[in-house]
Design a binder for these strands. Structure first.
Lengths: 110, 110
DNA sequence: GATATACTCAACCATATGGTTGATAATGGA
DNA sequence: TCCATTATCAACCATATGGTTGAGTATATC
C-alpha cells in the first residue's frame, strides 16, 4: 500500500482548474481521446494535452496508446483519496458543531 | 440558492497546497487564531496570514476579529460542495465500471 | 503613556502555471 | 508512397503563486 497521504495536495491542485474539472466530468461518462477532451475547449490541442498531463501526474487518469490515439480513462483511486480526506475532515467539524450544540442546550437547560 | 457550481475550482485550488491542508486539519478540531495556525509552520506570520486569506477567499473558513486576535473557523459549505462534486463524479465512474462488468459477465454467459 | 502582541498590508523576488507557436514522431488511409 | 490525423515536445511569454521583509494598525498590559 503506497502512502498516498502526502500527495493529496497534488490531486487537489490538479482539480483546481476549471478546464481540468470539465475534463474529469467528461471522463466520468467514459473513456475519451485527448482530442475528445480538447474539442469543447477554447484552446490548442497542445494546451489540452498539457492539462491531461497534469491530471495523469496527479494520478487522476491513465493514458493508453491505441493506434495513433491516446485513450484517457478516470482512475478512481485518486478521486477516492480526495473524497475520503474531505469526508473525514468535514465530519470532524460536524461532530464538533454537534457537541457545541449539545453543550449549549444542556447549559441553558435549567 | 447561489450558484456555487462554478467556483468549485477555487475551493480545490485552495486545498491544493500542503500548508493549507494542514490548516484545515487543525481547524477541523476547533477554532484557531492565525498565530495558532502559523505556529507549527516553518514560515513567517505574514506568510501564514496569506494562506488563511486564500482559504477565506475560497469560502473554506471565516475569520472573526476578537480583541487583537482573529479567530478562524471552518466553513462547512465549501467543504461540502467539494465533497459533493467528488462523490458525484467518482460515483458516475463507478456505475460505468459496474455496467461494463455486467456486460462482460452477460456476454460470457453462454 | 509606553511597550509588547497579533495581525495585515505593500512591495518585492523567484519559481510555477497556463497558454501559445513551430517542429517532430507515429499511425492510418488514399 | 504521400498526405492527413493524433499527439507530444521544446521554447517561449505573461501572469499567478508562495514566500520574504519592513512598515503600520489595533489591542492588551505594564
Amino acid at each position: 500500500m503506497v502512502d498516498n497521504g502526502r500527495q493529496l495536495d497534488s490531486v487537489f491542485r490538479a482539480l483546481g482548474d476549471p478546464t481540468r474539472l470539465r475534463m474529469i466530468e467528461q471522463l466520468a461518462q467514459g473513456e475519451r481521446t485527448v482530442s475528445d477532451l480538447a474539442a469543447p475547449l477554447d484552446m490548442t490541442l497542445a494546451g489540452a494535452s498539457k492539462h491531461v498531463g497534469v491530471l495523469e501526474q496527479a494520478g487522476l487518469l491513465t493514458r493508453e496508446k491505441r493506434g495513433r490515439e491516446r485513450i484517457c480513462a478516470l482512475n478512481q483511486e485518486s478521486l477516492f483519496a480526495a473524497r475520503d480526506w474531505v469526508e473525514r475532515y468535514s465530519a470532524f467539524w460536524s461532530q464538533r458543531l454537534d457537541a457545541l450544540d449539545q453543550a449549549l442546550k444542556e447549559d441553558g437547560d435549567d
